[in-house]
Design a protein around this nucleic acid. Structure first.
Lengths: 142, 142
DNA sequence: GCATACGATCTGCTTATGCGTACGATATGT
DNA sequence: ACATATCGTACGCATAAGCAGATCGTATGC
C-alpha cells in the first residue's frame, strides 16, 4: 500500500542499487576464477564477435582505450585471447578468444548466471520475463 | 529470434549500461537545477524521513560518511537542509529538509521523473509495470 | 615520395572514491 | 569522577577513472 511520501524511488536510484548488489555478487565469483571484472567484460565482448580494433572494443564496453591495454596484455599473456596484427592493415590488432579463453568465459559465466538465477527466483514468473525483456530493451544504446 | 552465441547479456552488464544511461540523462537536469548528484540523493533520502544521524544517512545512501560532510555543508549553506544538534544527544545532528529544500527536491524530481517516463514509454504497458515491480523488489537490500 | 591520418601504446594530470586515523565534544556505565 | 564509547569532522593515503598529449609504426591520398 502506498501512502503519500512513500512512492517508489527514482529509477536511477533503484538501478544503481541493483547494480551494486550484482557487482557485490559477482566479485567473489570472478575472484574464484582468477579474473578481473574488466577481463570478464572483455571476454564477454569478444565471445562470438571478434573485434577488429582495440578502440572499437573499448568503445563497445565503455572503457578507456588506454586503460584497456594492460587488461589485454594480461589476457594475452594468460593465453585467453589472441591479438595479432591484421594482415590487411598492420596498424590494427585483431582480437579474438582462444579456445582456453572461450572455456574460461563459459565457466565464469555459468557461475554468474547461476547467481543471477538465484536472485531472479524471488520474482513472480511473469514479472521475471517482463523484467528481462524491458531491461534488455532499456539497456540498448538506441 | 535467438541464435547460438546471441543470448542475452549478463544481468550485470545490462543493469550497468542502463545505469550509465540514466546518469547521463540526469546529469543535465541536475546541472540545470544547480545541484549535484550527491546533493540530490541526500535530498531524496531526507524527504519524508528525517534522519537522526549523519552516519545513518551515509549508510542509507551508500556514501562515505566523511565525504558526505561537504555536501551537507553546502546544502545547509544554501538553506535546503537543516542540521541542528539533537537536544537529547548533542553529539548527533538532526537532519531535515527546509521548505526550500522540499520545493527544490520536488522540482528536480519532477524533471527527472519526466525523463524517466520518456524512457519507459518505449516499453509495452505490461512489461513496464512488471519491470518496475521487479526492479523495486530486486533493488531492496534484503 | 611526401604530407597527412590513424591505430596502439605510454605518460602524466586531474578528479572521485574508499578507507584508516586522529581529535574534540558529548554520553554513559561504574 | 573517571574510563570508555560514539558522533561529527578533518586529514592523509591509495586506488581507479576520465582525459589529453606525445610517440611510433603503418596506410592512404596526392
Amino acid at each position: 500500500m502506498r501512502v503519500p511520501g512513500d512512492e517508489r524511488a527514482d529509477l536511477g536510484a533503484m538501478v544503481m542499487r541493483l547494480g551494486r548488489r550484482l557487482i557485490a555478487m559477482e566479485e567473489p565469483i570472478l575472484a574464484r576464477h582468477g579474473i578481473s571484472m574488466w577481463a570478464y567484460i572483455v571476454l564477454s565482448a569478444l565471445r562470438g564477435r571478434p573485434t577488429r580494433t582495440q578502440a572499437a572494443l573499448a568503445a563497445a564496453i565503455n572503457a578507456d582505450k588506454t586503460r584497456l591495454i594492460p587488461v589485454l596484455d594480461d589476457l594475452q599473456r594468460r593465453g585467453l585471447i589472441e591479438r595479432e596484427p591484421d594482415p590487411a592493415d598492420r596498424r590494427v590488432r585483431l582480437l579474438s578468444l582462444t579456445p582456453a579463453g572461450r572455456d574460461r568465459h563459459r565457466d565464469v559465466r555459468a557461475d554468474i548466471r547461476a547467481a543471477e538465477e538465484a536472485l531472479l527466483a524471488d520474482l513472480a514468473k511473469e514479472d521475471r520475463a517482463a523484467f528481462l525483456t524491458a531491461l534488455e530493451a532499456l539497456s540498448q544504446v538506441g
